[in-house]
Amino acid sequence: MIAYLTNLAALAAIFGILASTLNVAVGYAGIFSVAHAVFFGVGAYAGAQIALVLVPDALLAMLVAGLISGALSLCLALPALRVRGEYFVAASLGLQMMATTLFSEWKSVTGGIGGLTGIPRPHVFGVEVGTLPLALAALGLILLATAALMRGAFGRTLRSIRDAESAAEALGKNVAAAKALAVAFACAGAGVAGALFALHMQFVNVESFNLDQSVLIMAMVIIGGTGTLLGPLVGAVILLSLPAGLAFLPFIPATEVGAVQQMVYGLAMTLLMIFRPAGLVGDLSRGKSMA
């Protein structure tokens, strides 16, 4: 039971990082990306390869994974961010689909559909450590950095772009650069989460980095509360505990848990958008119709 809970907690911390970083793009900058799992995947493969080929050093794996994911997102964000709103959603959807194909086909790096197996357990300075403390530490650092950035000028810039992009431009803000930076920060975080995920699971394949995963991360942000520091974390914990919780309910057959889970997600999202459009932790007056 302890092992089970530790595993769940480590996954919650990893998905907490994913949801918190996506929230920087979605909640603060208003950039709706449904490709967050792509950068999670890039980080996971990068981290796994570092551990497999070089050393199973968790810090090195997280650093390299974060850098690669962040840099790659910048290359993609700069052209993609020229389009606004729903067009960016479509562009990110296209990216997600391309990446899923690439992850399944680029066998030398990703191991194809079968994925990468036998990833060694994480070490820090040569000593084997559990993923939970690593993930919690990374989550804590990312939350601190996010809080500091969002309270300051950069957060104001992103929120101003979210609320009125043309007015932000008219006040001298380079909107494209600020958005690209927000995306790079978010995707670097996803890369760090990916490396942790690879070291934690000791196995990665494309299944964890597809569109379903991107939608799940987005759901965590929206359910928890966009534009809040702790909302995405709450969303991540709830959506990860849900399948576990449902599995314990005696009247749901084990084979049906997946279907019930989808129904509960859907129902929860719909009810939430009606009664708490800004999410569980979000500001109550946000998102509601003014009529």
Partner: peptide, 23 residues
């Protein structure tokens, strides 16, 4: 085109901050 969900002070302070960088 106000920054509707930001405070009045943040709206005004934002006008003084033109760098898109983290700081």
């Amino acid at each position: 085109r106000l920054f509707t969900h930001m405070s009045v002070r943040d709206n005004v302070q934002s006008a003084t901050e033109t760098s898109a960088w983290f700081w």
